[in-house]
Simulated assay, not measured.
Amino acid sequence: MKVLHFPPGGDGFEAFLRESGPALLRLGHLLTLDRAAAEDLAQETYIKIGLAWSRVRKDGNPVGYARRTMVNLFLNSRRRARPMPVPQVPETPREDPALAAVDSAAVIRQILAGLPPQQRAALALRYLDDLPDDEIGALLGCTPATVRSHLSRGLATLRARREGEHHAPRP
């Protein structure tokens, strides 16, 4: 886990945002699989952290608090997901450069989108943030054994679907 060093003076919130922002946005993108939704999720996370900053700063683990907040917001939004009308549909979707570099990123995104939210969150926290089972369990509100189950099932699904893509007959 990265240790943040805040400059003397001020409350350190802006420095926290600068240092942790890119990593939180990457986590949000892996959770939502959509750049705009990831930005919205990150913004919601920053608002919640900002409102609780004095307590979060005293706790000494603002990155962990931010991760947990983001995962909770993601999982809660999935439970009450409703389509939101927009005034105008964007002409072209934006791709995340990190995922665009992956071979057949569209296939991987489609496979990840088919995973249940808990499995996708567990995979993102393990392989993006390299967290151990007990920390992932604390973030997801489950036991380390359940985390291992989410990871195992998620990876099995990813492997099976990825294999199916390689062996599917071409039109």
Rank of each mutant, 00 (worst) to 15 (best):
Y65A: 14
L4A: 09
A42M: 15
L17W: 05
L125Q: 00
P132Q: 08
L140H: 09
N61L: 15
H5M: 07
P22R: 03
I111V: 13
M70T: 13
P85R: 14
L115M: 01
D34A: 03
E95Y: 09
K58P: 00
T32K: 06
V71Y: 01
P117N: 03
Y65P: 00
S77D: 12
C142I: 14
H167E: 12
N76P: 08
L99M: 12
T69R: 02
A66N: 06
D134H: 08
D133K: 02
R82N: 05
F13E: 09
G137T: 06
I136G: 06
V147T: 11
E44P: 10
I47Q: 15
G12L: 03
G21K: 05
P85S: 07
A37G: 08
D130A: 00
R18I: 14
L139R: 01
V3H: 10
G28K: 02
R82L: 10
A36P: 01
E44Y: 13
N61M: 08
A122S: 08
A138R: 13
G28E: 01
V56H: 07
A38C: 08
W53P: 11
A23I: 02
G12I: 06
G12H: 06
N76Q: 09
L125G: 00
G28R: 05
G21P: 11
Q88H: 10
G64E: 09
K48M: 13
F13C: 02
N61Y: 10
A121H: 04
